[in-house]
Write a protein that binds this DNA or RNA. Structure first.
Length: 414
RNA sequence: GCCCCCAUCGACUAGCGGUCCAGGUCGCGGCCCUUUCAAGGCCGUCGCACGGGUUCGAAUCCCGUUGGGGGCACCA
């Protein structure tokens, strides 16, 4: 039988890091097995639904390059089917009415167990299973009823989900058995924790895919990083393309224990991906990011600045602060006495050609004349021109800025 | 409280009884390079939670302790 998996977000907010990681594992498994990856929206709790959350989740998946094979389905659409099954279960004597709701009669003795694809055998004593509400008094099915039924109807072969669902599994297994359907294989993947080992939350930093995107993380890098959270193909390989990830992914190598989200490592990996891009492509990515963030800066200048920053910044979001001086005025400031700055201005005033190479020679000559070491001499010039102690290469920056602006800033500082 | 699960450097992990006085990556420290910041190069630091077994032999298997996580809704 061909593999079919699904991700099942509830539309209650932005897609969370843990949620995409689970989606990613589903997707990788499906692609690895040449199976299908479905998206199902679990929206039976209408009261908690957030406007636009569905589209938001789909956008996040698409941004990461996770494609789905059929139009997304909605749990609420199967309300009638669920009710019908519940009534049948009542007729069969395995469910009963209780204050307007329908409850499923869980077995009282023995155990319910399954072989989890990532954790091995898991067993629950049936006496710990409460009789479960299948259909609420208002007629809406509950999650623990609708979810397994949809898995059955959709022909889901592998239920790959977060470990918070482990304790739901014995309940769902009993329901599926009661309707006489075949059980899927279950795989419970570990949770993603914050840097202190506690549940990932706002205080750890960005927790939504949209936030990560806004900070300038590059989708392929994030994908790679997320895949390595709780999974590793071997002990050596860390940088893997989408295709390599698909080719090597397996449930057996998914770790059963929770892992911490390490922003430092993500930053490093993002830098690795960004630096590896051909310059043109890097410029495209940078430009697209800035437009997405509503910067209306000149395209040609952005493209020209791209090579100056590619090796310097790990996240696209650093660009405005790092190279913004090319696009807007800076506050005039001096570091020490203005002598070098004034001398630099004079040296550049008539310089031809106004290229990085020529600028470097001219400025080095200035330092030589003044008896300054590069470290001492270039810093005041950098601060005058860029408004910051940290910047892209000075000479290239000056060339890009142009003579007029450069001289104006040097004069203002001197 | 009850139920389930997990346990290798600070972090992500490799390891599925001998090839491990434990390997890779991030981070961290040092040095080199250097116009700042990065990047890069070299070197280094740090770990099998603890206690019992099993075995000729255990990071690897079993039991317990401790610690951590998840769950106990007419939420998903």
């Amino acid at each position: 039988m061909s593999v079919r998996v699904r991700m099942a977000p509830s539309p209650t907010g932005a897609l969370h890091i843990g949620g995409v990681r689970t989606a990613l594992f589903n997707w990788l498994y499906a692609r690895n097995k040449s199976g299908e990856f479905l998206v199902r929206i679990e929206n039976t709790d209408t009261s908690r639904e957030v406007e636009g959350a569905v589209q938001h989740a789909l956008d996040s998946l698409a941004w990461l390059g996770l494609d789905w094979d059929k139009p997304p389905t909605f749990q609420l659409d199967r309300l009638d089917d669920c009710r019908r099954v519940a009534e049948q279960l009542v007729a069969d004597g395995v469910a009963y009415e209780d204050e307007g709701a329908i409850r499923f009669r869980m077995p009282d003795e023995g155990t319910t167990s399954w072989v989890d694809a990532v954790r091995g055998e898991i067993s629950f004593p049936n006496e710990s299973l409460e009789d479960l509400v299948l259909v609420r008094a208002d007629g809406r099915p509950t999650y623990n009823f609708a979810s397994p039924m949809e898995d059955v109807w959709d022909g889901i072969t592998h239920v790959i989900r977060g470990e918070d669902h482990v304790s739901n599994t014995p309940k769902q297994i009993n329901i599926i058995r009661a309707v006489g359907a075949e059980l899927p294989i279950y795989a419970h993947v570990p949770n993603v924790m914050g840097s202190d080992g506690k549940k990932l939350s706002k205080r750890h930093g960005a927790t939504g895919v949209d936030e990560l995107r806004a900070q300038g993380y590059y989708a392929p890098a994030l994908l790679n990083f997320l895949a390595l959270l709780g999974w590793a193909p071997d002990g050596e390989t860390t940088i893997m393309s989408r295709d390599a990830l698909v080719e090597r992914f397996s449930l057996e190598h998914v770790s059963p224990s929770p892992s911490q989200f390490d922003y430092d490592k993500l930053d490093w990996m993002n830098g690795v991906y960004l630096r590896a891009l051909p310059v043109d492509e890097y410029a495209d990515v940078l430009l697209a990011y800035l437009r997405e963030q509503d910067y209306d800066w000149d395209e040609q200048l952005i493209r020209a600045a791209a090579p100056l920053v590619q090796e310097k910044i790990a996240k696209l979001g650093e660009f405005p602060a790092f190279a913004g001086f090319l696009f807007h005025d800076v506050e005039a400031s001096v570091d020490g006495d203005g002598a070098v700055v004034a001398a630099a201005r004079d040296a550049l005033a008539e310089l031809e050609p106004f290229t990085a190479e020529a600028i470097e020679s001219a400025l080095r000559a200035v330092l030589e004349t003044l008896g300054l070491k590069p470290r001492q001499g270039f810093q005041p010039i950098r601060i005058a021109v860029t408004g910051s102690k940290i910047s892209p290469g000075l000479f290239e920056s000056i060339e890009l800025l142009g003579r007029e602006t450069t001289l104006a800033r040097l004069s203002a500082a001197a």
